[in-house]
Simulated assay, not measured.
Amino acid sequence: MTKDFSNSKKLGFMRVLQILFSFNIAATMLLLVFLVKGSYSLEFAHYLDFANLIFDGISFWLIWQRKKVAREFIIAFSLFNIIVGSLFHIATGSFGLIDQITGSLFDIVLLIYFLTSRRAKAVLVNSFSIEKKREQLDFDINYYQPKTWAFWRNIIIYFCVFSVVGHWMEAAYCTLIRFGILPGIYDPTSQIWSDWLYPFVVYGFGAVACVLLLFPLKNFLQKKIRGLAAPLLLSFLANAFVCTLIELAMGLMLNQPLPDGTLPLWDYRDMFCNFMGQVCLQNAVAFGCVATLMTWIVYPGLEKFLGRFSKDTMNVVFIAVAIGFCVLFFLYCVNVLLPGVNDTPGSLEPASASGQAQTLEGEKDYSRSAIDSVSG
């Protein structure tokens, strides 16, 4: 009996691979957080593992989108891992055939599967061509409808959600600094490492800017300029510039120098190509990458996903997200002084402009309920 591979929803073993890819990314990131700086040294194998995390993420997306290029990409990267790993062990004198086969077993399985699988050939059929991008552009343009309530409702949801997700993204970025992969200053006492639901509203504003400014710009560039490379590059440069301006504006408002000359929130004065210590080239590149990912992939994908739900369902989601965000914002970012309350032993001190509440005696736990603090 011949199997039918025409149903593109049935990924078969590729679904298992997607689960393995996502699990590897999540588990590796989680384990990295618990490493203590100075207790380890990064070697070639670690950098190869980091490259494989990127490979896992790209492979997951390519399979999800049923892209034909997924086969070639996974085959090429599997060969790369096998060859580079073998050459590295040969060069260091640690090569052993059995050990090398065991260590490369997953790549060997990927290589054999994507070379021989009829399902992969039948399901991974979507083109990665410019024509497909042109077709997708028509859908993207339709997502931008500022005269509708649904458009602004979704923007508010994105602001609330990405204010918290941005906190997690910054933690991941600072983790790279912590490992010495990126230059910068790692501060273990930073608000980043506590109160994981603390909203970093600058990222919420960044998400809004992506939707209102950078997404239409991306559509305009795609419409006016043929090809993919030029619109993508110009979009990246614009994204980096706009996001850097947002960080600069927030810095000039909230990150003013203290009497001793230090900047309370962030200080890039030791970083290459910085301006007033508020922005630097390294962060501009990082912002450009994230904003480009947001405008080209994440936002259209979210709009397509949310569009599957009814208007009433999305309105309920909006209410839940908005109220939940307000609770987080007032718990973590706003502390209203009440007469007599500030003198009680368990009371909260007013939050500083940075959103990092501190007392004269040192840092306190501000994740407690506001009601508990008032009751003392």
Results as ranks from 00 to 15, higher is better:
I319S: 07
V317K: 01
G307D: 11
N342R: 09
L360P: 02
M314T: 05
P345W: 07
L306R: 07
T313M: 06
W296M: 12
I297G: 00
F330K: 04
L306Q: 08
E361Q: 15
G324F: 03
A357S: 12
E363N: 12
S354L: 07
A322K: 04
A357F: 13
F309M: 05
A357G: 06
A320C: 15
L337F: 12
Q356R: 10
L331Q: 06
V316H: 02
C333Q: 10
I297A: 07
D343P: 03
G301N: 00
V321I: 13
L348K: 15
K364G: 14
M294R: 03
S310C: 15
R308V: 00
G346A: 04
L337H: 14
V298E: 05
L293A: 13
T359W: 07
S352N: 15
A353M: 06
F309Y: 14
V321R: 00
L337Y: 07
I319N: 01
L338W: 07
L348N: 14
T359I: 03
G355I: 02
E361T: 14
E349A: 07
F318R: 02
V298F: 10
W296A: 10
L306G: 02
A351W: 06
S352K: 15
A322L: 11
T344H: 13
T359K: 04
D343L: 12
V316N: 04
L348T: 01
F329S: 00
I319W: 01
L328F: 08
K364L: 11
Q356A: 15
S352P: 01
L328R: 00
N342G: 08
G301V: 09
L360I: 14
P350Y: 08
R308T: 03
F318S: 05
V336C: 09
V298L: 14
E349W: 10
L337D: 15
V316D: 09
G362P: 00
K364H: 10
K364F: 08
G307W: 08
L302R: 04
N315G: 06
E363P: 05
A357I: 13
P300D: 11
L293V: 07
L337Q: 10
M294V: 01
A353E: 15
L348V: 06
C326T: 10
F330A: 00
P339M: 02
F309S: 03
I297Y: 15
L306N: 09
N342F: 10
V327Y: 02
Y299F: 09
L306S: 09
L360W: 11
P300A: 05
F330P: 04
V341D: 14
V341R: 07
C326G: 03
E349V: 12
L338A: 05
L337N: 12
V327A: 01
L348E: 14
C326I: 03
K364C: 12
E363W: 09
G324W: 00
L337P: 10
D343G: 09
P339Y: 02
I323T: 05
F318D: 02
M294E: 08
R308W: 02
I319E: 11
F309K: 03
R308M: 04
G355A: 06
Q356E: 15
K304I: 14
E303Y: 09
S347H: 06
P350G: 09
G307N: 12
V321A: 02
Q358R: 15
